[in-house]
Write a protein that binds this DNA or RNA. Sequence first.
DNA 1: TCCTTGTTTAAGTCTTAGCTAATATTAGCA
DNA 2: TGCTAATATTAGCTAAGACTTAAACAAGGA
Lengths: 109, 109
Amino acid sequence: MHAFDVLGDPVRRRILEILAEDRHASGEIVAIVGEEFGITQSAVSQHLKVLRDHGFATVEVAGPRRIYQIDPAPMVEIDRWLARLRGFWEPKLEALAVEVARGKRKRRE
Amino acid sequence: MHAFDVLGDPVRRRILEILAEDRHASGEIVAIVGEEFGITQSAVSQHLKVLRDHGFATVEVAGPRRIYQIDPAPMVEIDRWLARLRGFWEPKLEALAVEVARGKRKRRE
DNA sequence: TCCTTGTTTAAGTCTTAGCTAATATTAGCA
DNA sequence: TGCTAATATTAGCTAAGACTTAAACAAGGA
């Protein structure tokens, strides 16, 4: 499974958002995400496993709890791929912005 | 299908790389990608459809050919999500870089 | 040691993405 | 109009991923 696939799942993206702000115990993530998406504790745990397995998160055992922490290492791969193309599409994006601005001006007239 | 899912497929990423450099007819993309991945014209065409449907590419009809061109619009969504988290993981990435540098220095000693 | 809480793992089901093969569509040309 | 080349679309198959339920595991307290 490629890093992009890991980010492809909305539940996993949400978990990363949560972990980006602060480290959390599995149970806390389950409480938030499980409620938001209406899925079981087990399902969330499986998503956490995917994040672990692909290096997006690390775990620290604290008694019976597992504290999850974001690990940005795999983002390097993502960023690298995007950066490669960015040089090509950035000019086009600027052209797009110009078009939008032109449209706005036109609408004002 | 989310934009991240679109980028999740290696064939589609390859097609975007090709289109980033220049516009190409469907057949040219089929020739390159089909050979590299060992898949049929139909399969490539279906990937092109996904890219079209999600706004990653636009088509121009030129006689019997369809000329594909990259459209960076959906990248805005991707970039926005990544940017939201970047503020959080960037410091951690720097910490990671420091760790690596420290490791290198240590190995030199 | 047994129980309880927090969590992961295993097994099985369902859905969907990606593929092939076959067919349809589109446009130009004889 | 019929033929050919370029491409898209459809149907059907298969594999993988996301889910639920049930079972296993880990750690601390009675």
